[in-house]
């Protein structure tokens, strides 16, 4: 059952990647990267269940936190002087 969820998440990951490549503006790419990170967290947890190793969940927690830091860092870089 987890592999069904994993396939769905991977399909949506492909769609997010297409948007990241197509995206007309830089912000579209950042948005796609943000969604990609959320989907990566979900696929990591599902992969942990598929292979029967729940250790992957620790990596998923870490990746959730890195996602926010990465998005804010990119936005700060392209838009300095604003909070």
């Amino acid at each position: 059952m987890f592999s069904v969820g994993l396939i769905a998440v991977l399909v949506s990951l492909v769609l997010a990647m297409v948007r990241a490549i197509m995206g007309p503006s830089m912000f579209d790419r950042v948005l796609a990267a943000n969604s990609t990170a959320t989907l990566a967290v979900l696929s990591l947890s599902l992969l942990g269940f598929v292979t029967g190793r729940p250790d992957f969940l620790d990596i998923a927690i870490l990746y959730t936190l890195l996602n926010l830091v990465g998005t804010i860092a990119v936005l700060k870089y392209f838009h300095p002087g604003e909070s």
Binding site: V4, G5, I7, A8, V9, V11, S12, L13, L15, A16, V18, R19, L31, A32, S35, L39, L42
Partner: peptide, 13 residues
């Protein structure tokens, strides 16, 4: 959940 993930990304497209 998987269907909603795909719907959100279709929206993104």
């Amino acid at each position: 959940g998987g269907v909603f993930c795909i719907i959100g990304m279709i929206g993104l497209m």
